[in-house]
Amino acid sequence: MNKLYYIKENGIHKLHYDFGESKCELFILLNQRVEPLHVHNFDELAVVFGGSAIHVIDEQKYPVVRGDVFVIRGKHRHTFEELDNLNIANIIFRRDYFETLEKEFADLPGFKALFIDEPRYRINQQFKSKLHLNSGQLQEIMNLLNGIRDEQANILPGYNEAKERIFEFLIIKLCRDFSKKQTANTMSLLRVSKAIDYMENNYEKRITNCLLARMTDMSESNFRYCFKKVTGLSPIDFLIKLRVEKAVGVMETTPSINVTETAMKIGFDDSAYFSKKFKQIVGISPMIFLKKQRAKVE
């Protein structure tokens, strides 16, 4: 049975791969053919090493050319149109493996921007923050991809582990290249990504625009402008939304908690203000949300 196959559910094409014991696999596609618009049961790192096309993802269209590198999260519907001798290397990887990599490379400059925030905020950025490699950088990446290809072909003892180590070094190399890229869009994404990472790990603390601006080496006004350009939200609105999302998680796992305790736990000093923002974002009050959670466990 082919390990890579399509199924169709509710009119949506879903591309599945049976990984078995493998955590990642490389597919090198020469003169890529047209595929149906689809989602995956895996995530994917794409390296364009020849030709061009229009990448259609989440109903948006972006040109891709030789040297472009980007991540496609499995939940996003995508395909390629107007293919012109498109040659592309796809490394597909299991989502639980990516969660491990996310922890392992948490402090690696460029990782969060390239693998998490660029895909997340791609529509706002119009794909202008994608990584583009020059000829020398692309050749270095192709050498690593050839190493993965050889391990897959030869199937020597330890080949799965060897593939993973090469892939992880490839990630480090790409993150270094992304961090060195000095366009306005990528610099904004790198700096905003640093602020987002801090907010996600310290949401319960007092966080100000001034603090985040200093952290990202920007003036406060420029930081606010860049943050909204990348995320579509002001820093304070982003923080409020993040805290409300954390509150939902707290109340789902601890339905015995009350509204005031929840507000204090996730960084709100005023439970009334928390309730107002919670209802705006979730659609119901935190009190009603808690009642529904308690009913589930009774």
Rank of each mutant, 00 (worst) to 15 (best):
I72M: 05
K112T: 11
L83V: 15
F105D: 03
G110S: 06
I88E: 03
R122W: 06
I92C: 01
I92W: 00
K75W: 10
F115Q: 05
P109L: 03
G74A: 02
L108K: 04
E104C: 14
F80Y: 07
L83F: 08
H76A: 14
F80C: 08
Q60E: 14
R122N: 07
L83Q: 07
R66I: 10
K75V: 11
A106F: 13
L101N: 01
K112S: 12
R73I: 10
I91Y: 00
R120M: 09
F105Y: 10
G74K: 01
N90E: 14
F111I: 01
T100Q: 11
F111M: 00
N90C: 14
D58P: 10
Y97V: 03
V64D: 01
D58T: 12
P109A: 06
Y97N: 03
V56R: 03
R77C: 14
K112Y: 09
N85A: 13
A89S: 09
H76K: 14
E81P: 13
K103L: 10
F111H: 00
G110Q: 03
R122D: 04
D96I: 07
F115D: 03
F105L: 04
H76R: 13
V71S: 02
V69W: 00
T100P: 10
N87I: 13
D84H: 15
H78C: 02
N90H: 11
P63A: 04
D96H: 07
F115M: 07
K61Y: 13
R120P: 10
D107H: 08
I92K: 00
N87S: 11
V71G: 01
R77F: 14
Q60V: 15
V56Y: 02
R66Q: 11
R94C: 08
Y121Q: 06
D96G: 05
F98C: 05
I88N: 04
R77Q: 12
R77A: 15
E59C: 06
I116P: 06
A106P: 12
R122I: 12
N85G: 12
A89I: 00
I116C: 11
L114K: 04
Q60F: 13
D58Q: 13
R120L: 07
N87R: 12
G110H: 02
I72A: 06
Y62T: 01
E59F: 09
P119V: 05
K103M: 08
D107W: 11
Y97F: 04
D117K: 05
K61D: 09
F80P: 02
Y121S: 04
K112F: 12
I91N: 00
D84C: 15
D58L: 10
G67A: 03
Y121K: 07
V65G: 15
K112W: 11
I116Y: 07
R120F: 05
N85S: 15
V65Y: 15
L83P: 04
V69T: 02
R120I: 05
L108D: 03
N85M: 14
P119C: 04
L101Y: 05
R66L: 08
I92R: 00
R73Y: 12
R122A: 06
E118D: 09
R120K: 12
D96E: 09
